[in-house]
Amino acid sequence: MLLREIAHARTGDKGNISNISLIVFDSSDFELIKEKVTPDRVKKWLGKIVKGEVLRYELPKLRALNFVLYDALDGGVTSSLQLEKHRKTLSSYLLEMPIE
């Protein structure tokens, strides 16, 4: 199963930091994503995009996880040469992650 089948996501940015909020559709799937979508796994999945640390914050009442991705925007929106400087598509890419 792909993560997008049980959750939706939204990406934000500040400076050279990106964050992805991952929200499950059904509260019964929250424990599953807590177990399967770890900071290490997110960092591996995003590959070379995230050069720094990945932190995860849990918001159980919202059925959500928030991942903070340090050094993920090539220096920040105003200095990056990337075509998609805000990296808003990171949330869509994360939703393609397979989970068991």
Rank of each mutant, 00 (worst) to 15 (best):
D29W: 12
R41N: 01
F67N: 08
P60D: 10
R63N: 15
Y70T: 13
D29K: 15
K48D: 15
G47D: 05
G52Q: 04
N19D: 11
T11D: 07
L73I: 09
L32S: 03
P39V: 05
W45Y: 15
I33P: 03
V68K: 00
N66D: 09
Y70S: 11
I23T: 15
I33W: 04
I20M: 06
V54Q: 08
V42G: 06
K44M: 08
D74V: 08
K34N: 15
D40V: 11
N19K: 07
V42P: 11
S21H: 11
N66A: 08
Y57N: 00
A72M: 09
V42K: 03
T11Q: 14
G75D: 03
E53F: 12
L22T: 04
S28R: 14
N19M: 10
G52F: 13
R41A: 14
S18F: 04
G52V: 14
D40P: 00
D26C: 06
I33T: 00
L73T: 10
K34P: 03
P39Y: 03
V68S: 07
I17F: 00
D71M: 02
P60E: 10
I23K: 12
N19Y: 12
S21A: 15
A64K: 04
Y57D: 10
K61Q: 12
L32A: 12
S21I: 13
G75N: 00
E53R: 15
L65I: 11
L69V: 05
S21T: 14
S28T: 13
D26Y: 04
L32D: 00
V68D: 02
K14T: 09
D74N: 15
S27I: 12
G15L: 06
G76R: 01
G12F: 11
L59N: 07
D40G: 11
E35T: 00
R63T: 07
L62W: 06
K48W: 05
N16W: 09
F30P: 13
V24N: 08
E58G: 08
R63D: 12
A72D: 02
D29N: 15
E58P: 06
L69Q: 09
R63E: 03
V37Y: 03
R56K: 14
L62C: 06
L59A: 14
E58H: 09
L22A: 02
L46W: 11
A64F: 09
N19L: 08
W45L: 11
K48L: 09
G15E: 02
R63P: 01
N16I: 07
I49P: 08
L73M: 10
G76V: 00
R63L: 04
E35A: 04
K43S: 02
I20K: 07
N16C: 11
K44Y: 03
T38S: 14
Y70E: 08
D74L: 04
N19H: 11
I33A: 05
